[in-house]
Design a protein around this nucleic acid. Sequence first.
DNA 1: AGTATACTGAACCCAATGGTTCAGTATACG
DNA 2: CGTATACTGAACCATTGGGTTCAGTATACT
Lengths: 103, 103
Amino acid sequence: MVQYTATVDRAFAALGDPTRRAVLERLGSGSATIGELAEPFGMSLTGMRKHVRLLEEAELVTTEKVGRARRCMLVPYAFEGISTWLQRLDRFAQVVERTKGVR
Amino acid sequence: MVQYTATVDRAFAALGDPTRRAVLERLGSGSATIGELAEPFGMSLTGMRKHVRLLEEAELVTTEKVGRARRCMLVPYAFEGISTWLQRLDRFAQVVERTKGVR
DNA sequence: AGTATACTGAACCCAATGGTTCAGTATACG
DNA sequence: CGTATACTGAACCATTGGGTTCAGTATACT
């Protein structure tokens, strides 16, 4: 009965953008700086920083400043909240199917 | 190796909006018409229709015209694609934690 | 000390999105 | 048949969102 909603909300919104999902995938294979994240997209540092900030606010990514660079990494178990939400919905969907019968 | 990406993309985008997530939750407890979906939000039918159309394109919802009404319902197993994506990421996140050590 | 690097903040731009209204069309009902 | 209901399509509007550039600041290198 925890107050997940706000974070879940931001998480889903964050996942709605393909660039940010790609960033998450990239971070899956290890931490990276803003510059390293921006480069493959040919995107400005400023642009990438905005994405990363949204991911931080959604609590999917953490960052720390190391020297003049900012190191970004996945938050462990970041997807628990949304996974839970999805699983609940998925159960509903299956129930719906069952009550409809085979037809 | 299936070509999930396009659908997954639309699914995440669709889930990014709180109204649409609420619609999905509502449909979890049974099918509903456009009017029934619009009412609790105090939203126009036209507005709700747009949301439902996006959910259809994301293959999360199906609809059928029944008389003058349009019946909307959850697609069974609609969330498989995105669940898979999330689970993969979640595994990554856990690996990241493990390699970091306890500290 | 001086220069290069990595990021940040502010200001701005454009396209997409979430919403509306209004004027239809099609079905349902008395 | 006539009227009410349920939705649809087109046109429009305001806000947000993803992106940029440019002018800093702070750290790193020689």
